[in-house]
Amino acid sequence: MVGVRLEHVTKRYGKVVAVDDVSLEVKEGEFFVLLGPSGCGKTTTLRIIAGLEEPDEGRVFFGEEDVTRLPPGKRKISMVFQSYAVWPHMKVYDNIALPLKVQGYPPEEIERRVREAARLVQIEDLLDRYPQQLSGGQRQRVAVARALAVTPRVLLMDEPLSNLDALLRVQARAELKRLQRDTRLTTIYVTHDQVEAMVLADRVAVMNRGRVLQVGPPEEIYSKPSSRFVAHFIGSPPINLFEGTVTPRGVDVGFVVLPVGAGSLEEYSGKRVIVGIRPEDVHLTASPGFIEVEGSVWVTENLGGEYVVLVSVGDVILRARSREKPESERVKVYLDPSKLHFFDKETEARIFS
């Protein structure tokens, strides 16, 4: 087990910059998630850490060891891919044991490690089966067990749950979190699923267009997104975003003037800014200090335990989360002014914390 550090790593494919000057530090024993949309550079970054790709610039460290030019086999890492990558002609036991046999471990040590890895992922009773006799979730457990059996310094996972159905993904997320907590392996996990990142990660790095936009604990990234992109990418249902003009009275967004802290937006006076507020901070019931606006119910989405109500207010559609279904087409919604986010319209960066 070891920490991982990337210093100014860049990777190009012709004119395409896949990874653009990325610097990251993953702490020893941390569950670290690389999150972003398809094509953002997260998998390329993972492959550089694994040694499957060489960076054009920058360096990769495991602890204090520079592994930038070290081949994958010398890095003592394990990798779990999106595809299960289990050998169909081998039983589960042999699938897990294969890398140990290749590395020349004695039979008794192979036996111990295989059974311990199988116990960790709860497939001890499946060791005598073939992959075609297993469900998708069980096959993915075999792939994880095989990665754990070699006792890696770093465990790398590239969207390992994306081939599972929704209910199985929820179960597998909990199992992965428990497994990492028990083993304390330094784990770097790639996903485009922001819910998965929020549930699993000790810290998240949000990426887009090859760059790291923000790094921090999930709750920090959710509550204080560093940019419009991060605010929109994190959160389900997504954050409400609309534009407004900064005036002496506050930010005029057309349907209401939103108050801001004294002096907070002075340098933006007369300029357009982007305003954000999350659906859970838009209410259908009044509270002291909340900002009241009126609109028409556009769509109501029933999520079982709650509703997401889309309300048309002026030229803006506001999403609100509510335990109760609105009873009429015209409704009042109430915005919590302490939960407003403001972003620069040109740079899309967060204006203040």
Rank of each mutant, 00 (worst) to 15 (best):
M1K: 13
M1R: 11
E7S: 14
V9R: 05
R12D: 09
R12T: 11
V17Q: 09
V19W: 07
D20S: 15
D21H: 11
D21F: 00
L24Y: 01
E25P: 04
K27H: 08
L35D: 01
G36C: 00
T44A: 03
T44H: 01
R47H: 11
I49M: 02
G51H: 05
E53G: 11
E57V: 04
R59Y: 06
V60N: 12
V67N: 02
R69I: 08
L70T: 15
K74W: 02
M79G: 03
M90T: 13
M90G: 05
M90K: 15
V92S: 04
Y93I: 03
A97C: 09
L100W: 08
V102Q: 00
Y105M: 14
R112A: 07
R112W: 13
R115I: 13
L126F: 06
D128R: 10
Y130W: 12
P131T: 14
L134G: 08
Q138A: 15
R153G: 09
M157D: 02
S162C: 07
R173E: 12
K177T: 06
T187M: 05
Y189K: 07
V190F: 11
V190E: 04
V195M: 10
E196Y: 00
A197H: 01
A197K: 03
L200F: 10
V204F: 05
R211N: 08
E220Y: 10
S223I: 02
K224A: 11
P225G: 12
R228C: 13
I234V: 14
P238I: 07
N240Q: 05
N240V: 12
F242I: 10
T245A: 11
V260P: 01
G261Y: 09
S264L: 15
E267R: 15
V273F: 01
G276P: 02
P279E: 10
H283Y: 06
H283D: 07
L284H: 08
S287F: 00
S287K: 14
P288E: 14
F290Q: 14
V299R: 08
T300K: 12
G305N: 12
G314K: 10
L318T: 13
R321D: 08
S322E: 04
P326M: 00
V331Y: 00
K332A: 14
V333H: 02
P337R: 08
K339V: 05
D344F: 01
K345T: 09
A349Q: 06
